[in-house]
Design a protein around this nucleic acid. Structure first.
Lengths: 105, 105
DNA sequence: GCAATAGTTGCATGATTGTGCAACAATGCA
DNA sequence: TGCATTGTTGCACAATCATGCAACTATTGC
């Protein structure tokens, strides 16, 4: 596991590791339809600028994606990507150890 | 999803979302045997006090557990707990949406 | 008892981060 | 064209956090 990859994984977790950002993820998780930023503001009681910045972080980590339509940005949860990453780490943690010779995952 | 639970999950991710802490997790992941703190110091080039504090954070989140034997503390990764938590969120993210009526996970 | 080893804690510090407000750009609508 | 709506960005500020050092406790071994 090289340092760059470790850093990237840490950044992924860090993005999920903040209350309001995780609330946004849950909100997007609940609704199958994509939501615009103003709608997402309602789920966490902070300024719109804060939501904007949080969504930017989530998008940078590929946790959410968005389509720009007119003046609105429509966000949706990147379900496959996020679930896959979480399962990858779960598998690594559960299965890799010295005895099985799995040193380098 | 109530706020307290969301906060707890966020704290779990935050604990994994820091480079040196994640490196410690990977290090414990690689070796099936439990490792003492001084041994774990080698995997990230920071002061022993820093490692001590990081391990404390990981233990508070149930990511690692330890046995105290004499003056040494022997750490091991809480594989089941961590893998289960990661898979739970993966399942939630992949499966829950309004259409399936799964609002409240 | 004394020195060495393992680990923790207090303190100071620099960096990062979350936040609100105000100003701004861009788009839609009347 | 004028105005409302959506969203972003600059700025300031407070809080959190990662870190190193030094001092400390506790245990082991001589």
């Amino acid at each position: 596991m090289d340092a760059a990859k470790t850093q990237k994984t840490a950044d992924f977790f860090k993005a999920l590791g903040e209350f309001n950002r995780l609330s946004l993820v849950y909100e997007l998780c609940r609704c199958n339809d994509s939501q615009n930023a103003m709608c997402l503001c309602d789920c966490c009681s902070v300024d719109a600028s804060v939501v904007s910045r949080h969504l930017k972080v989530l998008a940078e980590r590929d946790i959410v994606t968005f389509d720009k339509v007119g003046r609105e940005k429509s966000y949706q949860l990147n379900r496959n990507e996020v679930a896959t990453k979480l399962r990858e780490l779960a598998d690594l943690i559960e299965n890799s150890d010295c005895k099985r010779g799995n040193h380098d995952v």
